[in-house]
Design a protein around this nucleic acid. Structure first.
Length: 419
RNA sequence: GCCGGGGUGGGGUAGUGGUAUCCUAUGGGACUGUGGAUCCCUCGAGCCGGGUUCGAUUCCCGGUCCCGGCCCCA
């Protein structure tokens, strides 16, 4: 009987796991050094949590099930909803803003393809209690830093504002319909032009320069048609872009970012890695207000989520040996040396040295091949002679030298391999 | 959900209507307690189900999974 993985899931081989750790360790470090604190939430929640946040239609793409008590539960399709729940129940009296991050697996029932799995991993951050341009700019800086530190070469950050977009759509007399927003998000300009006043909308969407946009909106033609709060929103966007400029974060203004579901309220941004193909978005986020849903009205927040699996695909070749770190091998050459070998391995491990114990009591030549293939720095041999004299033979695989030393010199000799 | 391409040892492959090639990796051995070499041995395969056929890994149908794209993407 053989078993296969469920569709859309992945086995993490040691090599893949090293890459995953490489990505998540960097993201975690980036967030922690910026003062964000890690949180964790359940892998499954009441299904209503996600439905409340994202709408009934998400049920189609969720793993929903009843537990033995008849509760409707769902494997989490995202983590922001859980963090907001956590905030509203555990953290609401903490000083604002609250800056947290998470790393976790999520589940969506979708057609798997490159960069899209039914179980996938997200890294994300939330700033709760402040969705100012300053807060958004910090978040985007953090996102850009993380992706840059991972070593992703070719990526593009686009920044927009759904409030600005929706107002423009309304002022042009176009319906803010879901399918129109979908067309905008997709960048299907030809199809939009086919609509009444679609030309004008496309013209606005294609503006990439802040000053150009500002002059346009300040012009009498527009100023009369646009509601008062419009320019405030637009200035929020302009301020955010200026802050990104100051931070040295590469970006582009893009008023056409519509971001799927409609709880986003203000600044939104996405980061694409074009080389990934169809599923090229590695990061998405923006300002939202879910306070009403979670019983804390008026709670402004902003956050982003990154696709860890896609980031793993975006990194070039990584060297396994350097990912896992240096190691030394301890090799007993005969069964009687096993006890000493265990003891020596323990001593070296206490020093924080990655120590691999060879369990097969091989001949020296074979042990050397195994150690070389594993990329080890050196070998501690324990054979007949060493047992008799209470010594150890330490071989340096790089320099191709070796020395037989007494026990009290073992640690120093092995540590010298690392230099 | 839709369109297209695929599925042969652990990984990579060749060929074929008469059960399968080679490479590599794994395990063991030779080279006498010392360098990735070389050599020998071992292990191990046609996604699943049905059909056609004396016989199917090969041809046909269905399913499944993988890959690319569409839809969607919180």
């Amino acid at each position: 009987m053989t078993f296969k993985r469920p569709r859309g899931t992945r086995d993490m081989t040691p090599g893949l796991m090293l890459r995953m750790r490489y990505v998540t360790d960097i993201l975690r470090d980036t967030a922690e050094i910026a003062g964000f604190l890690e949180v964790g939430t359940p892998t499954f929640e009441h299904s209503e949590l996600f439905i409340e946040r994202s709408g009934e239609e998400v049920v189609d793409q969720m793993y929903v099930f009843d537990d033995k008590g008849g509760r409707s539960l769902a494997l989490r399709p995202e983590i922001t909803a859980s963090v907001m729940r956590l905030y509203s129940s555990e953290l609401r009296s903490e000083p604002k803003p609250i800056k947290v991050f998470y790393i976790g697996n999520c589940f969506r029932y979708e057609r798997p393809q490159k960069g899209r799995y039914r179980e996938f991993w997200q890294f994300g951050t939330e700033i709760i209690g402040n969705d100012s341009p300053f807060a958004n700019a910090e978040l985007m800086t953090l996102a850009a830093d993380g992706i840059d530190s991972i070593g992703v070469e070719d990526c593009l950050m686009r920044v927009g504002h759904v409030g600005v977009l929706r107002t423009l759509v309304n002022c042009l007399g176009l319906d803010e319909k879901a399918d129109l927003m979908a067309l905008i998000d997709k960048g299907a300009f030809d199809e939009i032009r086919a609509l009444d006043k679609g030309d004008a909308l496309v013209y606005l969407l294609e503006v990439e320069d802040v000053e150009e946009a500002r002059e346009l909106f300040d012009s009498t033609e527009f100023a009369q048609a646009l509601p008062e709060e419009f320019m405030d929103r637009f200035e929020d966007l302009a301020t955010t872009l200026a802050l990104l400029e100051a931070a040295g974060v590469e970006h582009r203004m893009d008023l056409g970012i519509a971001r799927g579901l409609d709880y986003y309220t203000g600044i939104v941004f996405e980061i694409d890695v074009p080389s990934l193909g169809a599923e090229k978005q590695v990061c998405g986020g923006g300002s939202y207000d879910l306070g009403d849903i979670f019983g804390v009205p008026g709670t402004k927040a902003t956050g982003f989520a990154m696709g860890v699996d896609r980031l793993m695909l975006s990194v070039g070749d990584l060297d396994d040996a350097s990912l896992k770190g240096s190691e030394v091998h301890v090799v007993p050459l005969l069964d009687e040396a096993s006890g000493v070998a265990l003891n020596v391995a323990g001593t070296l491990r206490d020093e924080g040295l990655r120590t691999v114990l060879n369990l097969s009591c091989p001949k020296p030549g074979k042990a050397i091949k195994q150690a070389l293939n594993a990329g080890a720095l050196g070998i501690v041999f324990i054979g007949e002679d060493e047992l008799a004299d209470s010594t150890y033979t330490v071989k340096d695989l790089d320099k191709q030298t070796q020395a037989t030393v007494p026990g009290e010199k073992l640690i120093d000799t092995v540590q010298a391999l690392y230099e």
